[in-house]
């Protein structure tokens, strides 16, 4: 069973389009959704839940069409846009009190357990919480209604490294319990620490969806001095750019033997930076 299956999702704006976005998620896996700012990550996520009306395409959660089963599906998932970013001046206990009345599977014990675990005080307002605590409160609400799929839009943006690491650890623990996570971010190093798969979107198109290790292994980064590479070989370089000393570029792993220069493993950030640079 696919937790989420997206087929040929399209959305046309005057100056931007999502083009045939397709992907699927398996239970208990963390999938990173990467792309630069404005690539279409948030539009895709919003289209999944009809916040934004897709021009075309099909979205199925738990093998059921979202359009026909919106109520049931929303009972089983959670969509977090960063941390709690609504009703910042209301006490958490009021937000919880309102939120829980919408969920059939709300579990007060789980809620209290996570509130304790995350050191969240119900008498505080979201405004009084740090960014990391806001994410934790959002996660608490999601987990208290037993969400099986978490869709997180930039949950770690704006967080300090320690808080980010904490959130990633929480997500990994949740995945171990069988919860599926779709996690959009442009902080690629976060994904290297926790994700199983990545989906890479560029200009509204999915340009890669793969296991994260296979994806990073398929590229190498080369460093070279000016004029040390022939023009022919330069054509095989993706996103040639200036570095502190000389130049760097991304190459496909299979082209590595052609280059007689310093060659290192590519990180997700290297891949993204060079691929985005290649367009310019």
């Amino acid at each position: 069973m696919n937790v989420l299956e997206v087929k040929n999702l399209c959305k046309n704006y005057r100056d931007f389009s999502l083009k045939n976005v397709s992907f699927s998620l398996k239970p208990g896996e963390i999938t990173g959704f990467i792309g630069r700012n404005g690539a279409g990550k948030t539009t895709t996520l919003k289209s999944l839940l009809n916040f934004v009306h897709p021009t075309d395409g099909e979205v199925k959660f738990f093998d059921k069409s979202f359009a026909d089963n919106e109520f049931d599906i929303k009972q089983r998932i959670a969509f977090l846009l960063g941390g709690v970013n609504y009703y910042l001046n209301k006490k958490l206990k009021i937000i919880t009190n309102v939120t829980k009345s919408f969920y059939q599977n709300w579990d007060n014990k789980t809620y209290e357990q996570y509130m304790r675990q995350f050191n969240l005080d119900e008498n505080k307002t979201p405004f009084q919480l740090s960014e990391g605590m806001k994410v934790k409160y959002s996660l608490t609400l999601a987990l208290s209604h037993n969400a099986e799929l978490l869709i997180l839009d930039e949950p770690t943006s704006g967080l300090d490294p320690v808080s980010r690491d904490e959130i990633l650890e929480i997500l990994m623990n949740l995945a171990d319990k069988g919860i599926t996570v779709l996690f959009s971010t442009h902080i690629t190093s976060d994904l290297e620490k926790c994700a199983d798969n990545i989906i890479y979107i560029k200009n509204g198109e999915i340009i890669a969806k793969d296991n994260i290790d296979s994806f990073t292994d398929s590229y190498k980064v080369i460093e070279f001095e000016e004029n040390s590479i022939s023009e022919d070989l330069k054509n095989k370089i993706i996103g040639l750019k200036r570095a502190k000393k000389g130049y760097t570029g991304l190459i496909k792993g299979e082209n590595k033997p052609l280059f007689n220069c310093a060659c290192t493993d590519a990180t997700l950030e290297d891949i993204m930076v060079h691929i985005e640079k290649d367009e310019l």
Partner: peptide, 8 residues
């Protein structure tokens, strides 16, 4: 946004 995330 908050209300749309709820099952309604």
């Amino acid at each position: 946004f908050y209300t749309m995330t709820l099952p309604v």
